[in-house]
Design a protein around this nucleic acid. Structure first.
Lengths: 357, 357
DNA sequence: AGCGCCGATTGTAACGATACAGCAACGGTC
DNA sequence: GACCGTTGCTGTATCGTTACAATCGGCGCT
């Protein structure tokens, strides 16, 4: 078996210096077309695979790669449509800047080494637990960091919306439609630590709590206190359906706010099953505005937080830091997108619950 | 500004050899607890971030990372639920083996360098065009390769189902239910090359053509030739709806086979809009069995090809090659999952189209 | 002819770790 | 007490590039 040829060996075979070979591969303009072609031809003949990226990275001191640390177990990340949208935006913006994206599981099983060995120039933390050991590992690497949602670390730019304020918009919308009796569907609120899935959930828990808070606070400001909180076991469509199924038998509310589109879609499923018409009998509002929200039946009214755009912003914050620029904090808009799952409170219901003055 | 400390400098400060520092970080068992702690303490004091991954990779000759090359423009990859499911399986299996996953756009804009510089030990090609220039770049790297779906390269293990045979199962199912007049919804069949999106599409085109072929061939074997082929502009829910919308005004068929779940969901949307009851008036079959297929209304009957599992198989094929083992080809099952979107042909329709004998 | 300049090319010294072989000290065994 | 296997540590060579400064022709200008 022959040794894998190196840049040196190509140089020798071509009768030029190693630098010329390097130039031929990396800087066509620094090199006459003639020698360049000659070098490339010899390289091909020797079966040279091109400059070794590891050696190049060592020498240049950078990898042109950004690592993104995903919640605990990778599975969860891909199951979550919101996360996928964020990654989509992140990957796109990074690709345009010539950076590749390395997916890192925030382990939970391996020997703790993934973050330590990651060939990256910077990290993006995507909805992690503040006390996840992987976060400590990342900090130890002393590379630029950007955090999305959680955790909030001093000196680390964070991309994320004001969950409470955004949820309040949903409340205003529903109150404006005349609703006075509500249910909120959240998840992970009552979760235990010993469940494996729960660990992944805890990282996003804070955001969910903020949404519930913002929603109920706004209701209270409008004089409404009739809010039932339903806790789903996890952020999944079926779990959302399950959470409201019982309550839909004999609904004590005319509107539901789900802290996640995925949950809201589950609520739609449950309503369909229970023959509760949406929005005629029940209004439903979600949160995130994932792609599936616009094609559900009926299309979901939801709080849009432009996850794709947030991925792009995270990318820019990373690139700013890599370029030595101060990452400038741009506010992230969130807005209510009114579609077909909400309407004015039904007449019969309105009579049963007189307006507050 | 101080220089970033190196392993050497830590060794000097601790009064030990560099190897001892290396051992302290990487091989706790090769090192007495005492010295280990001393070394780590000094490292912390100096602000040492741990062994440099680039240097380590150069020396060890591996990166513990697998690169996955995605269709043309990254955006498409994340929009495609099937692709996400595959990546999910791939990432999970690789993570369990201690490998990270590097996402590489098969560019289309950048200066051609992404693949060349990728810090990886192997590549996975995910539904690429056989003539994508990036494929040539990958081959040039002379690293282990696994291909998913397309392209088919000599000597490269390929993960993928037999699309024609799988689609035939859908045909058999529908014929068995008494259907005799069909529509097939596909995409990209008539696409032009000058559209940017189309380029991405062409890579999966072959698979789609195989599905259409397998479906119609099976029908013909059953003596059925009444098949309308509808071409969607792209693999998206809305496009699927649009493709059948006109035909649903006055349907000439009782069953629709969509080459993709995403398209099939669009067909469901269109049917709902046109007040065509599924499955009472129209049966719909999809392909892929993405997560959304089981929670649609009605739940979609579809050809399941366990994309998640295929990701795992791709990972195993990669790991086999990295370990010097011959990757063993395992057959990938595809099976029809009958859910709620198909039923026997409606009586009125059955009369209109007498059975072939 | 002499001068300065520019683009192409070269030589050498890192970049920061780990593999490998070797060595000293230490107990336990006969 | 000689022998031997472990354990814990050390020295050095090397992984394959690229940065940097220096060099070398050739060519247009004066």
């Amino acid at each position: 078996m022959t040794q894998r040829p190196t840049l040196q060996s190509v140089a020798k075979a071509a009768g030029v210096s190693p630098m010329t070979v390097s130039n031929a591969f990396n800087r066509p303009d620094q090199c006459s077309a003639g020698t360049r072609e000659k070098v490339l031809k010899i390289a091909r003949e020797l079966g040279y695979a091109g400059p070794d990226p590891a050696a190049r990275s060592l020498r240049r001191g950078r990898t042109d790669t950004v690592g993104v640390l995903l919640t605990e177990r990778l599975p969860y990340a891909f199951t979550d449509l919101g996360m996928v949208a964020f990654l989509h935006g992140l990957a796109t913006a990074l690709a345009d800047a010539g950076q590749a994206l390395l997916l890192l599981p925030a382990e939970g099983n391996a020997e703790h080494a993934h973050v330590r060995n990651a060939l990256v120039d910077a990290f993006v933390l995507a909805s992690l637990l503040p006390d996840d050991p992987a976060v400590a590992d990342v900090i130890e690497r002393r590379l630029p960091i950007v955090s999305w949602g959680e955790p909030r670390l001093p000196g680390v730019p964070r991309i994320g919306i004001d969950n409470a304020r955004a949820a309040a918009k949903a409340a205003r919308h529903l109150v404006g439609l005349g609703h006075r009796r509500f249910a909120v569907v959240t998840f992970g609120a009552t979760a235990d630590i010993d469940d494996e899935h729960t660990l992944a959930v805890r990282g996003v828990h804070r955001a969910m709590a903020e949404r519930v808070d913002g929603f109920t606070r706004e209701l209270r400001a409008a004089g409404v206190t009739d809010v039932a909180v339903l806790d789903a076991t996890k952020n999944a469509r079926a779990a959302g359906a399950q959470a409201v199924a019982a309550a839909l038998e004999n609904p004590e509310f005319t509107a539901v706010f789900a802290v996640t589109d995925v949950l809201a879609l589950g609520v739609l499923d449950a309503a369909a099953r229970a023959a509760v018409a949406v929005p005629a009998q029940l209004s439903v509002v979600g949160f995130d505005d994932v792609a599936a929200a616009s094609s559900s039946v009926p299309p979901l009214t939801t709080v849009s937080q432009s996850l794709f755009e947030q991925g792009g912003l995270a990318a820019r914050a990373v690139l700013d830091q890599l370029a030595g620029r101060e990452p400038k904090a741009r506010p992230i808009r969130s807005e209510l997108v009114v579609r077909g799952s909400t309407s004015a409170v039904p007449e019969s219901q309105a009579r049963r619950t007189p307006r507050v003055r």
